[in-house]
Structure formats: C-alpha cells, structure tokens
Design a protein around this nucleic acid. Structure first.
Lengths: 260, 260
DNA sequence: CGAGCTGTTGATCTGCATCAAGGTCTGTGG
DNA sequence: CCACAGACCTTGATGCAGATCAACAGCTCG
C-alpha cells in the first residue's frame, strides 16, 4: 500500500492536488532495501520500471568503453530513479546504491496509465525532466570549462543545498557519503586530484572536514569560486492554463480527457 | 495558422493521432526568419515561449563566468527550441542561429493549455525531454572522459546520422555548418585543437573535407574510434496503456516475437 | 590481526591550452 | 575590377592543469 516517500518534489509546483499525490504514492511497490553498492538496475537491462528513492544516496552512471565510468546523476531521497530510460527499450544507465538505500519500484505501465489519465501528472513529470536536463547542462558546462577546484567547490555547494532542503545536514555541515573516487567519477577527475582539491579548499579556509563530515566555512567565497549560477525553479504554473485544480476524475467508464 | 514544420519528431512513437499532430502544428505563430548569428532568445530573458525550428542550424549555449561559452545542444530542423526553460522564470540558455534559420514561436500558454487537455501530447513531450537528457548524458561522458580525437569523431557521426535522418546530406557527405570555434564550444576544446583533430582524422583516412563539405570515408572505423553507443528510441508505447497501433505483422497465429 | 578499502603525498608525464604568426576566402566599398 | 577588412583556418613553439605512477598510512570489518 501507500509507501510514504518524500513528496516535496511533487508539490514544488502547485500543479498536483493532494489526491494526485496520493495516487502517485499508491503506485509504488513495497519498499525494498538495497545494500551499499547494490545495483538497482544495470545499463542495458530491460527492466521497465522506475524507482522512488526513499532513503540513501544513489548514483546513475554510464560505463565507458575503457571501463571507466561517469556518474551522470546523484540521487538523494525523494528523487525518482531511472526515468530517463523510459524512452528506450533497455536502460541507458546503471543505478547503484552508494549507501544502504530503500527504494520503491514502480512498474512503467502503472505510471504510464496514470499519466494518460491525468495531464497534470504527466506535465509534472515533464517539468521534472526539464529541470534535470538543466542540471545536466550545468554539469556539462562545469566539466567542460571549469577548473578542478571550481568543480569540487560547486559540488560541495550543490550537496549542501540539496541536503539541507530535504532536512539532512544541520548547521554543522553534512555527511558526505561519497568516496573521493566517486567524486572523481562525477566530476571527471582522478581520485588523486580530488583529494588535492579538497585539501586545497581546506587550506584556503573554505571548508572543514573531519571524516565524512563536511562543513562549509565560507559558503559565499565558495560560491564565488565555483561560479555556479543559482537556479530557482518557477512556481508559476499559470501558463498551464489551469489554476491547478483537480482533474475532473472519473476515469472509471468514461474516457477522461478525450483521446481520438 | 498551420505552419508546416517537420513532424518526424512527433510521430516517432505512434502515440499521437494525426489530429493531435495537427493541433500542435496549429499552435505556432507565422514563421519568422532569423539571420545568421541572430539571437532567438537570450539567457536570462523572461520570454516565455518555445520555438519550432523549421530551417537552419541553431545552438543553445550557456555563457560562463569568464566569458567562455558552452554549447549545450545543437538543434536541426524539426527540433523544438527552448523547452528546458519552461520550468524557470527566466531562460537558462541562449538560443542562437548558426545559419540563417526559420522558426515558429509558440507561446508557452498555448502549449500548456494543449498539454493539459491531451495527456498524449504531454507524454510525447516528456519522452522527448527524456531523450534529450540521454543525449546530454552521453555528451557529458564524452567531454569528461573521451580524448579530443574521439569527441570530434563522435560529433561527425552524430551529425551525419541526424542530418541523413532529416533528409539533408547525401551519399557524398554533408555540409558542416559549424566553424571550428563552434565545434570547440560544443566539445569543450579550443578551436586550434579542433583543427588539429579534424586534420588528424583526415590523415588517418577516416574523413574527407573540402570546404564545408564533410564525407565520412570509413564510418565504422570512426565509430570504433568514437566509442559511441548506438541509441535507438523505443517505439513501444504499450506501457502507456494504449495498444500500439502499427503492429507491423500480426503473428500468424502462434507466438511470434510475443509481447506480454 | 590481516586484508582490503579509502585517503594522502610526492615525482613525473602528457594532452590540450595558450601564444603567435600567417594564410585563405568572402564580401564590400571605391 | 581591385584593394582591403574581417572571419575563418592552419601551423609551430611553449606552458601547465591534471593524469599517471608509486608508496604508504589509517580505518573497518571479517
């Protein structure tokens, strides 16, 4: 039954009604535990589903010709995993738990059927996909043009922001659940160089680390160094023509919002 | 009134009915000519619309802190421009014509209203967005990990494929409407190095160039060098709860390549 | 208590950037 | 028809950020 995953991603815009949110929550199968480094779905797999991440950190990565890998997306609790693959017959990325994690599987047909009955839900997913595309564009620009130091700084800021937004991490910083090698896979750097950059940020007095714990001492200087542009998603959905109200429902025997 | 733009992007899956396609075509304003290097929409602009590209090559780019720019997406005729920005109040990328181009503007409210009445259209856009996300993931992996030579090879292959798919380019190659500087902006290389890489591909006997004209002499070797994985979008939309229509061949009576 | 991750540090190498100087082509105005 | 300017391409010389190679130290967990 309803798995109570974090819904802040769904309610960011006021597009969905509580009923919509409930319908989405009802889609998921019972939560399932994944061990650290457990593979949730492998590149090339024909498993046609998406997953909601309830707990833990997860990476979506692509294997490269020479055995290297590029992490293309870091997922935190509340994120939907694996949705990129829905337009392909086999998965485009490998989804791996970086920490012990809890996910809830959603078979693609279920979410498909739901989207086809509720435009608001389809549009919400579209907006989320566009937002992720922007994240990727920013990362592409960073990997292509920014110095290693700036990239590492940008990552720390991004993580701090995202973690605080979902209530992990306190005033005293956050727990960085990534090895330096994984940071390298994400930013296209070698683990050795990641180490030096972290160390340099420390020497510059911008961050403090103790074990996994990271604290941003001077966030604004860090932000300046990272040269990231702040992005805030729009909450204005008036262009969707609807002051977000319940999609008139009964899909039961009618045809809902027409087709054909 | 109806601008007759290329629709192959819309009909790739059999999700949309001809009526749907017609409704989309009816959205666009009269086509408008853009000069080479004309800016269709700038980063930060609050122009809330998307554009259909009818003719010409267009780049979506982001300006970087130091004045450099990263081209994040190359658009060819039939593509929809600027859709990433729909979840932000101001445009995230600058959309510039690389050749003289023709576009048709679509105010966001119009496409919004249409999506809210037709889930099939919303889902089609979602699938397109996911596909583009994959393209970005591939590019990220390339820029992060592949050698300059491989990146250039990959670009030539991508362009050849895309151009042939839309009927530009013949057996004798295609016209490369990019300066070497623009290729650099796309692949995160300096123009000087792009030049050397193109030259090296020539010396290796993999491609031939005369002016803007490019011909891939040994596409398979090029593909091997580029280490790109072929991606073919799924045409199976049965997960959307709708029987996929052009079932090519009804399996005689038995099994055939069964589905479900 | 030993094995394997993970992090740290130094020495060296290299792919691509940077700097610099022409060369070629195209369009434009005289 | 010519001259000239600006955009684009080409090629060489040199520099440097980050990769690679190599050790070792600390931690964790069987």
């Amino acid at each position: 039954m309803t798995t109570n995953f974090p819904t802040y991603r769904l309610t960011a815009t006021s597009l969905l009604t509580p009923a919509d949110v409930a319908r989405i929550q009802a889609l998921g199968e019972p939560p399932q535990r994944i061990a650290r480094y457990g593979v949730i779905r492998s590149e090339g797999s024909s498993d046609r589903s998406v997953y909601f991440l309830l707990e833990g950190w997860v990476a979506a990565s692509m294997l490269l010709w020479d055995g290297e890998r590029q992490i293309v997306k870091l997922h935190l609790p509340g994120d939907m995993l694996g949705s990129t693959s829905m337009c392909f017959d086999s998965a485009v990325d490998t989804v791996t738990a970086l920490t012990p994690a809890v996910v809830s599987r959603i078979p693609l047909e279920r979410i498909g059927a739901l989207m086809m009955t509720s435009p608001a839900i389809a549009v919400t997913m579209l907006l989320a996909a566009q937002e992720e595309r922007t994240v990727l564009m920013d990362r592409l620009a960073a990997v292509g043009r920014a110095s290693a130091l700036a990239r590492v700084a940008a990552l720390l800021i991004e993580l701090s922001d995202r973690l605080h937004r979902i209530g992990h991490g306190d005033d005293d910083g956050f727990d960085l659940a990534l090895t330096q090698e994984q940071i390298g896979d994400l930013l296209a750097l070698t683990p050795v160089h990641v180490n030096r950059m972290l160390r340099q940020l420390q020497e510059l007095g911008l961050v403090a680390r103790r074990g996994r714990r990271v604290r941003l001492i001077d966030p604004s200087a860090l932000r300046r160094l990272a040269a990231v542009r702040p992005r805030t998603v729009s909450t204005d959905v008036s262009w969707l023509g609807r002051d977000m109200q319940p999609v008139a429902i009964p899909p039961v025997n009618g045809d809902g919002p027409l087709r054909r």
